[in-house]
Nucleic acid binder design. Structure first.
Lengths: 188, 188
DNA sequence: ACAAGTGATGTCACCTGGTGACATCACCAT
DNA sequence: ATGGTGATGTCACCAGGTGACATCACTTGT
């Protein structure tokens, strides 16, 4: 036992998720989140750079795992094949947090500020995947296009997944979406 | 002549662009922008909902023109063909504002807040194009994938275009990028 | 065992973005 | 002239965010 209650970060995250869900993101104050966690506004800002970031802790981990999947794939894999591998890695992570995904997604969908933050996380992810593709000797344009296509497929698949009454696996949905994209691109 | 200096909005935009460029976005205060335009902080917020929006005035027009291009295309056009038509419409607009595009782009690239705003504008554009595709009887998934692919190609092409020493036409760059995307999707 | 850290937290003062309520003031229509 | 009307100014206020400094429980060197 330390001198303070442990897991301050986790307590702040729980408090924020609960309050954002109960009263809405904009109607919730950082001071209220901190109070609910038994802490201070100032301490909140020591753990999270701003009021939005508390919902996005762990996105770097996802990014690392998707990049690692690209790096670990066989040498002859095509660009979109590597994106498929990255999406499979994302699927593992998403299934782990399935129970929180719905509520969190609805909160984000309710606020423009939060959507903006989610989009820049996706852009960061795309940039990281593009770097990994360039390291594999793909050209700049191909790397950028394939990487952003990866986040496109991820988001489209994610939205189908969170609301799916059949609880279909994310991997399944994402693979189907990627196949559909290939189809679109080869048609016409 | 009116009772006030006319074009308050334009003056605010000019002042903001100049100050963001000279001193940086974060170091510039809304009060300073308003003062430079001979107005008040309160008036700034009557024209623009926030400090970021002053750089994005006119994005609805681009959105409308791209959607109109989709609606005006021949009935048998494929999904990516429609996206190509939308990109051609965007090209017209971009060439009109080429001289401002570079400075504006560098300002946006310098600030996370501004990048977030740009990304949500792109998301709004993608949603509008997806609606236009659904109105053409494309399925939800196809519409969402194709529309987001359109913004992907637009952004990748835009970045090549603004820094291009040869001043290549945006339309050319965008068409090449779209062709490359088709190539990626059909390979492997 | 005691002094000197160390690190997480609290306190306080402050700036800036953003908003609501109300006052002005030039022009316009009747 | 009289009473709108619409763009602007004034003022007070809240919340997000930050820097500087104080606390205080525990750790470490001697």
């Amino acid at each position: 036992m330390g001198r303070w209650q442990p897991d301050a970060r986790a307590r702040l995250q729980e408090a924020a998720l609960a309050l954002y869900g109960e009263r809405g993101y904009e109607e919730t104050t950082v001071a209220e989140i901190a109070e609910r966690a038994g802490l201070t506004k100032r301490t909140f800002f020591r753990y999270f750079t701003d009021k939005r970031e508390v919902l996005f802790w762990g996105s770097e981990l996802l990014e690392q795992q998707m990049v690692a999947a690209i790096e670990a794939a066989p040498a002859s894999t095509s660009a979109l094949g590597l994106i498929g591998a990255a999406l499979d890695a994302a699927a593992v992570r998403f299934e782990e947090v399935r129970e929180f995904a719905g509520p969190r997604h609805r909160i984000i969908a309710s606020s423009r500020e939060l959507q903006e933050r989610e989009l820049i996380k996706a852009a960061s992810l795309a940039a990281a995947m593009a770097r990994a593709l360039r390291a594999r000797r793909f050209g700049d344009t191909v790397a950028a296009l394939a990487a952003r296509t990866g986040t496109t497929v991820m988001h489209v698949a994610f939205e189908q997944w969170v609301d799916d009454p059949n609880q279909t696996a994310f991997q399944q949905i994402a693979r189907d979406a990627l196949a559909q994209l290939r189809e679109i691109a080869s048609t016409g």
